[in-house]
Write a protein that binds this DNA or RNA. Sequence first.
DNA 1: TTTTTTAAATGTCAATATTACAATTAAAAT
DNA 2: ATTTTAATTGTAATATTGACATTTAAAAAA
Lengths: 235, 235
Amino acid sequence: MTKYSKQTRILVAIDCIVFGFDGDILKLLLIQRGFEPEKNKWSLMGGFVDPDESTDEAAARILKQLTGLEGIYMEQMQVFGEPKRDPIERTISIAYFAFIDIHKYEKQLSDEYHAEWIALKEAPKLIFDHNAMVEKAKEMLRYKAALHPLLFELLPQKFTIPQIQTLYENVYDTVLDKRNFSRKLLSTGLLIRQDEKDKEGSKKGAYYYKLDPAIYKDKFQAFLNFIPNPQAFLN
Amino acid sequence: MTKYSKQTRILVAIDCIVFGFDGDILKLLLIQRGFEPEKNKWSLMGGFVDPDESTDEAAARILKQLTGLEGIYMEQMQVFGEPKRDPIERTISIAYFAFIDIHKYEKQLSDEYHAEWIALKEAPKLIFDHNAMVEKAKEMLRYKAALHPLLFELLPQKFTIPQIQTLYENVYDTVLDKRNFSRKLLSTGLLIRQDEKDKEGSKKGAYYYKLDPAIYKDKFQAFLNFIPNPQAFLN
DNA sequence: TTTTTTAAATGTCAATATTACAATTAAAAT
DNA sequence: ATTTTAATTGTAATATTGACATTTAAAAAA
């Protein structure tokens, strides 16, 4: 049997970028690094890939170990492969990306861990190239949310229309017209209004909605440029 | 100085997926693997990352070594990180992705190399998980082309409207209405009609167009769903 | 009980974009 | 001169977008 004997093996790390939304502002999950180099500096959740796990498994394991979070959908984002990015030893890092409802995971994220939610707009300087990773993740978020109902996935099971609007406004750092936004959103036919209202934000209260799971997968797709029926072409 | 002494180093490979368009059909660049395992089987262009090069540099080097192609814009696609994907030794592979005008690189792709253009629809069984990589790349192509004028970038300097239409029809595997497609395309204001015609495809001949480089970067962006001025949010 | 306050919900209209569909034109070949 | 082929151009009905103001529900204050 042949072997790849002349090749160099390289350290492979995972870094996890976790965005969270609490219905109000968009936040980033960060930890203070517990080991050298750069001990105590702010950092993304990171670690090395073990020999017998897939990179996806490694990402889930590392996130769990450092934050307690489990069962979160993380997506691979990008490899950061500059030879000098880690000063100790050449390490390539695969950045993973998740986006969650903060309230939903409040309990898992216990004091046992040092992970903290920081408002995205106030994120501190991070170690290595982690700030670049976060920037890339923001870009990806906007890109994906443009074509895909990604942002819906991080809403609570029940949510209000003003909440979704706030979320979109946060992600795109813009202000939207209530009337048009609401109309567009409801026209998808995906939201089922509940009888209950959320009275947190106002005296009148805003109706809760749920996603219609039956239609969600098929129907919700944005429409594109040169393709008359683009829904058919995206997942 | 600390070291990451307890961690396992892993082989890191690159695989390159290169799509090409010749104005007629959409093709995939493949090689017959020159070494064990799986010698002589069809494969993507692949190799290992060297200690002192970035992953992007490795991708460019490997493509050059195996095909002669140089100066091609390749984008990172995805890591394939299953532990058993290479039967010889655990290897993670970073898949890179390019899309080119076949005619433009005809000379570089000389007989010296064994790379061949194969019609995408007739692509053979490839080694390891390379077919899955190609599938993923097709998906990515559609996704990106939906929001980004990516497909324009692989057209010849001069191209005709029927050519672009064929390209879109190939990528999305659909049929488009000539009249609507042409109108939409011209309405971008990005195309400058040349006096010359391409008489290959018909007796009447189709006008050549060029991209207006001045407007191209700013103006050409698709428009999105919930965001009134989405251009502002994409690169 | 009445009034005030706050944010949610809803409506209209003009402008623009999309779709579906058919006739005309240029130029080579017969 | 006629035929053939594919490119080019047009129109009308429909749907979507964006800009803009008023009404409504319910708690809090008077």
